Amino acid sequence: MSVADAVRAAAERLAATSDTARLDAELLMAHTLGVSRSDMLLRHMRELEPAGFEGLVARRAAREPVAYIVGHQEFFGLDFTVTPDTLIPRGDSETIVQAALDTARPDARVLDMGTGSGALLLAFLDRRPGSSGIGIDACAAALDVAANNCERLGLAGRARFLEASWLEDGWSNDLGRFDLVLCNPPYVEADAELEPDVRAYEPASALFAGPEGLDAYRAIVPQLGKLLLPDSAAVLEIGARQEEAVSAIARESGFSVKLKRDLAGRPRALILT
């Protein structure tokens, strides 16, 4: 079977479980061939199907995310390594980075709370050469992924990654203060209905935050006052129905709040000053 025929057959198979079946098939084939998707489409469609492709399609048919199968995901124009120890960076979260770029000073010192793959921090630093930052996470394996991404993206020396949990007393004692805090915390309700791609594969500790999805905000927001310098800001990702609840938590801690919507018009980021 040719590459073109194999991709077509895989897309038909995946259509029952994926809204992006054709794209999934093309990405998996390109990964199997060891080339980019565009290069595959231009130069390799008449070649014979490579060994191993069918196994990757079977994994995707079982709802494993493509990003975990191929080991990387594009975010804010950069390519990030991802593993099941980290959330997969999503286009919606680019709103957080853009809000930060619109808000923070060019030479900002940045803290990324719950850094995962490092996507938020590293995307910001890539666009702000005068800035530096720290990413914290409670998962040591995630920090290894973030450090690897930092090195691959040529940002070593401008970012460091530390194992820390905002739930533990004294976790920030030696960090100093920051011009910008970024955070995409867990914010999914414990009983929320999620696609199997997410619930079965992405790390639960980075998804769920109590019955209302607000536990992380209640822990994080009251600590921001001692983390932020004067005239600085925090940018928090929120769920589409959490604007009012998280804004109330922020105002109780003395912050002014500004909403930033994503490209679909949904509430996505709160800027706290």
Rank of each mutant, 00 (worst) to 15 (best):
F124V: 03
G114A: 08
V181E: 04
I220C: 10
G91W: 15
F161T: 05
V145F: 02
A58H: 12
D112V: 04
A119E: 10
G114M: 06
A58S: 14
A234I: 08
T32L: 09
E64K: 06
A146N: 08
P196S: 12
A10E: 06
L263A: 09
A248W: 02
A10T: 04
S18I: 06
G114K: 04
P186E: 11
G135V: 06
S117L: 07
G116D: 04
A62P: 02
T115K: 06
D24K: 06
G133N: 03
F76A: 14
S36N: 03
G239I: 05
P65E: 10
A206W: 10
E193W: 11
D215M: 07
A123K: 08
G176A: 05
A147V: 04
A159P: 03
L182N: 12
A146L: 04
R251E: 15
V235H: 14
I96Q: 07
D39W: 15
A15F: 00
T115E: 00
A21F: 00
S93P: 01
I88R: 03
D197E: 15
L56D: 05
P129H: 13
F124P: 00
L56I: 05
V35I: 13
P196V: 01
R199E: 13
L236F: 15
V145Q: 01
S93E: 12
F75W: 07
A240F: 14
H44T: 00
S132W: 15
A30G: 01
P50E: 14
E64V: 14
I96S: 00
E151V: 11
L227T: 08
R241F: 05
E237D: 03
Y201S: 07
T81G: 03
T95K: 02
H72M: 08
A216Q: 07
I134K: 05
Y217P: 07
V57F: 12
D215P: 10
S93L: 02
G254H: 05
F75L: 02
V246N: 03
